[in-house]
Design a binder for these strands. Sequence first.
DNA 1: CCCATCTGTAACATTTACCATTACAGTGCA
DNA 2: TGCACTGTAATGGTAAATGTTACAGATGGG
Lengths: 137, 137
Amino acid sequence: MNSDFTLAIHSLTYLALQLDRMSKSDEIAESAGVHAVRIRKVLSLLKKHGIIKSKEGTGGGFIFAKELNEVSLWEIYMITSEGTLQPKCPDSNEACVVGANMQKVLFSIFLGAEEHLGEYLKQYTIKDIVDLISKEK
Amino acid sequence: MNSDFTLAIHSLTYLALQLDRMSKSDEIAESAGVHAVRIRKVLSLLKKHGIIKSKEGTGGGFIFAKELNEVSLWEIYMITSEGTLQPKCPDSNEACVVGANMQKVLFSIFLGAEEHLGEYLKQYTIKDIVDLISKEK
DNA sequence: CCCATCTGTAACATTTACCATTACAGTGCA
DNA sequence: TGCACTGTAATGGTAAATGTTACAGATGGG
């Protein structure tokens, strides 16, 4: 899967450990090992969905906008990676019964698969991730 | 996800409609809209797992080696795409608590996710795909 | 026995997707 | 007014995916 998902979770976990102040994209980028611009892009998405707030200018940055246990991995998956599960279908031969219909058959099956995955990912919230990270330490 | 999965399902469905004779990689490639060499690569994997048989030389090709309802999408997923679900993790900063542990935390969660996905994909076999394709037609 | 027809694979070329980087406009604070 | 941030578009580089070529090995038919 897409690494945007990982970056989103990483960033949110970082913010979760700094609830009292704003974090700059530079700090998060350094922790995640990627360029600050990518962090801003991903966080810009999360902001649009009301999960975090941001402020420009001096002293600005990003900060959590919800309770840690209100944000599930499923929500983040949908924002950053919806549809990733769908297997890629090369354009097949429309003149062949198999080629003409394979794509829509697989599509509908994997629509169900993504829903099913959702049931699993809804179990985990950012709070759980924070706890697991602390336990590892 | 990986398009090898789609190609495998496509090929197997094609073979399922030609149970009485061997199919050449050329035919399947034309139906799937990819190069014959790719089909041979994917089918070579399926052969190693005993799902199909192949024969070289004149009159050779590929043919199903099992009952259609014995081969589940999960089995094909595992052969062609195991681990695809894991989100990509850029190497993060080991000096940071978050960076140092994010990868293993996400890894274990998505190990569970893949298992969960397995429960869903086990429901479907090549026979189901063939039926669905026929229904579409 | 030799030739045509396949699979099996490796090597190389090309296209595509992903990501880093640069650049700069807009915003906010002192 | 000047510095410190976010927001975003544009550009370039690199790795992954895919297509293509090439050829060895198996098989069966004249």
